[in-house]
Design a protein around this nucleic acid. Sequence first.
DNA 1: TCTGGGGTCCTAGGACCC
DNA 2: TCTGGGGTCCTAGGACCC
Length: 427
Amino acid sequence: MKAIIDCNSFYCSCERLFRPELANRAVVVLSNNDGCIVSRSDEAKAIGVEMAGPYFKAKPLILKYGVATFSSNYNLYGDLSWRVMETLRQLLPPNTVEVYSVDECFIDLSHIPIKELRAFCMHLKDTVEQWTGIKVSIGVAPTKVLSKVANRLAKKHKLATNCVLVLDSPRKTQQALEKTLVEDIWGVGRQYATKLQLYNINNAFELSKQNIDWAHRNLGGVVGKRLIRELNGEASMPMNEERINKKIIATTRMFGKPVSTLKEIKEAIATYVSRAAEKLRRQHSAAATISVFIVPKEETAPGARFRHGPSIGTYVELPQASSSTNELIKPAVALVDRLFEKGRTYKKGGVILSNIVPDDSIQGNLFIPPEPNKNRMLMSMIDNVNFSMRNDLIKFAASGTTRNWKMRQELRSPRYTSRWEELCKVK
DNA sequence: TCTGGGGTCCTAGGACCC
DNA sequence: TCTGGGGTCCTAGGACCC
């Protein structure tokens, strides 16, 4: 059997941890740039604050009910996420924890007898809560997709399930599938949900009865086949070993306010390159392709569903993979020159590094004299200062100093667990 | 006035090879 | 009139996830 363990309203729970007076109050956390709502406590859900809705639209509701509102504080969430995962690793055999996202992991439970699964999972849940202060829900089933189904119901019916639901019989599984609408299945997004409803397939049980070849034709090829098999209890998505290195690394942001000068866009892009290069070095990699895009500001027709306008982008292959900020900034900024059109206003930009290789096996280039990664020392010194003291204490001139385009983050809580000067004060 | 950011996997189709 | 077949690699774009 497999399980998915999922932190309840993760970002909100993190904020509450250091603000116990918020325990029973509605809490929401906003995305970067204070744009959207990305986490809601149960109380916030109850008063009708919508997930992923724009902040400005929810604001009347938030003010009316006095909802505690936070900008996202990724230093804090990252650290607490690590604590939760580390706790689970200590309670489980080696290599049975697959971290899936900042607040979720799959675990392999084949070492636990079926009859003891529930008790064991309660033990996991209680220990995580006791050690980290974060509440989790656990769904257990023979496959990943079914465990996601179980997890969703566990969270939905907290009182009845105590946040742990085990699907250990065909009868329980069928009941769970019947209670799950197609759009709530892991792997079914808006496109597929619409299509399925068109065929009058409305819940997960109905979907599980569909023909495999039909799924292949209609639900994205092997992805669809796999989904049907998983719903029928046939494990088709193996547990993955820990993903060490990312294959692409991106840093993309809305600008704090629309930007219309080439200089400012170049500064923003140079700053994003610095961030992305840090991520690259943290995993001891180098990138050989660098892509840059910018998104012009445009109006959304009233009433229309919001969508971003097309992004304008291009990329360049470097003669040799690199992880040095200065080597990456130059080509990135040159790409901006090609993309920028005078007179237009832009709202977002981004940098994507791909073609990523380990930095100890960089493919030499016949036409470039080989030289040791001479920037390595400098870079790691800069990283150390910036990580331990203050973001961007040391930065490259190309990043600019005024930074009018910088994102808004007006409601961020202190980084309680990762900055000395922001520690919780008891007295 | 204000609608996130960072990923993964998969497919189709073109270029190219023998 | 007939105009191969089988394979690999690459890229762009779609769909999905949290």
